[in-house]
């Protein structure tokens, strides 16, 4: 059952966010398709040379096939992320594994992070169950990641941990001037999640509360 509550909370920024994520995914897919296309073309070139009498080198064929397989796998992972993202608004409020949601956000921001020369890694740790609004949670993670990417190059370790109220996501490292997202839209989003985002010892800390199952 879909509700428009998430979209109303996000306002016009919601569509912009959805569009930006889809654009990033389409860019990644195009890159993988280009790789597959060029490797297939290379094999055609090698076949044409072999027809003209040049010995075929099995190693070059194997290398091309390996690259194609790698990019099929990469494109499939990107599509998997897009599919999960597209279904986030399906159930507006439900329990999630916070770590999985953070992993999805990092996967969706992989290309943007590479452009900004920010290396994002998910620190090891256990799962944290959280009753929340998954689509809004993804939008809040996007806000935090946006602040980190805008601050400049660096390596950011993202950690997920339980808290008394629910759970928290800590973004440590990266450029020191990364400021917590502020403004009416960010404030409304964080309030809808029962969340706070603060700077804490050079890290950004997104504290999230369990939301009641009914509202």
């Amino acid at each position: 059952m879909t509700t428009d509550l998430d979209w109303r909370t996000l306002g016009p920024a919601g569509l912009e966010y959805f569009g930006r994520m889809c654009a990033g995914v389409s860019h990644e897919l195009k890159n993988s398709l280009a790789m597959i296309n060029e490797n297939a073309g290379l094999m055609q070139d090698l076949a044409a040379l072999a027809q003209r009498g040049q010995p075929l080198e099995p190693q070059r064929l194997a290398q091309g096939m390996e690259r194609i397989a790698r990019h099929v796998e990469r494109a499939n992972a990107v599509l998997g992320s897009l599919n999960r993202f597209a279904h986030l608004p399906d159930v507006p409020r439900r329990p999630v594994e916070l770590r999985e949601e953070v992993a999805l956000a990092l996967a969706l921001h992989r290309r943007q992070a590479a452009q900004a020369q920010v290396e994002l890694t998910l620190a090891p740790g256990g799962d944290v169950s959280l009753s929340t609004r998954p689509f809004l949670l993804a939008a809040a993670l996007d806000l935090c990641l946006g602040a980190l990417l805008a601050a400049g190059p660096g390596a950011v370790a993202v950690a997920v941990a339980p808290s008394a109220a629910g759970g928290e996501v800590v973004f440590a490292g990266g450029a020191p001037q990364a400021a917590p997202p502020r403004g009416p839209e960010a404030d409304a989003l964080l309030a809808a999640l029962g969340a706070q985002c603060v700077q804490d010892g050079g890290a950004l800390r997104l504290a999230l509360a369990h939301l009641p199952a009914t509202y």
């Binding site: 790789m35 060029e38 073309g41 070139d45 091309g64």
Partner: peptide, 16 residues
Amino acid sequence: DDEKDFLDVLSERMKG
């Protein structure tokens, strides 16, 4: 291009 794999293959085809 920032995709090194892509550069390698495209270079090889063009050199050919």
